[in-house]
Amino acid sequence: MTLPEAGPLGVFGGTFDPIHYGHLRLAETAREALGLTRVRLIPAGQPPHRATPGAAGAHRLAMARLAAASNPAFEVDPAEVEAAQASYTILSLERLRAELGPRRPLVLLLGVDAFLGLPTWRRWTELFDFAHLAVANRPGYSLGGAAMPAALAEQVSRRQATPDTLGAAPAGRLVQFAMTPLAISATDIRARCAAGQSLRYLLPPPVVDYISRHQLYL
């Protein structure tokens, strides 16, 4: 007996330095708006496009697990943190495709800023071979009003689809979804830590406790 294929899996990578309610709200909004069965959070080990994270990979992985623990639709993937090489999205998608098989729909979740920078990513056009891409728009800032490189605009024009089509193919489509942004940033959280200010209501309480216990970002 052949078991049916599972539904679309959201893939949400990031430095998560630290993970906060803005990250979690984006993941939950995407899950609902796009009909995802689960969302896999992937903390970056050595992000190639950013400065060295403020907390070691093991700490960021632990905080992601604490943040995701209360949502049964969230799971945390340790592979990038545990890898010895830089964290490139295309490598993670190749790994997930090998793990989950050729037919499971994968949906890579991105903010508008990250999507517009896609041409600087390694093997960026190949991302569509392994996953759908879903872009989170926020009020006043969406792909519709954004200037973008010609190569990226061509991909948008060719691949745009609606969320209800994501389950019909394993990869290759581009969708957009709306979210209300939370005015929370990891940069601000790290600055508050350094200044000895409260982090309450910016991150899940277990993450706040973890940061305090391990004296991170001081």
Rank of each mutant, 00 (worst) to 15 (best):
T37Y: 02
T2Y: 04
R95L: 13
P105H: 03
T2I: 08
G111I: 12
L218K: 11
V11I: 15
G10E: 12
R192W: 01
G145R: 09
A73F: 12
G54Q: 09
T37N: 03
A98T: 13
A169C: 07
A58L: 11
A44C: 15
T52N: 02
S157D: 09
I90H: 07
P205K: 08
L118W: 09
S157E: 14
L143M: 04
R104A: 06
A169T: 14
L61K: 00
G10F: 13
D164F: 12
A6K: 13
P170A: 13
L96V: 10
A68Q: 02
S142N: 04
Y141I: 00
V11L: 13
L96Y: 01
T29V: 15
G10H: 11
L36D: 09
P43C: 09
R159G: 10
P105M: 10
R159L: 11
A134N: 05
L91T: 15
H49L: 15
R159A: 09
T29L: 05
G14E: 06
L66G: 01
P78M: 07
T89D: 04
G144Y: 08
F16N: 09
H20Y: 12
D17G: 05
Y21N: 11
M179H: 05
A56F: 11
M179L: 15
P48H: 05
L91P: 01
T165M: 07
D209H: 08
A136M: 15
R190E: 00
P48I: 06
L110K: 03
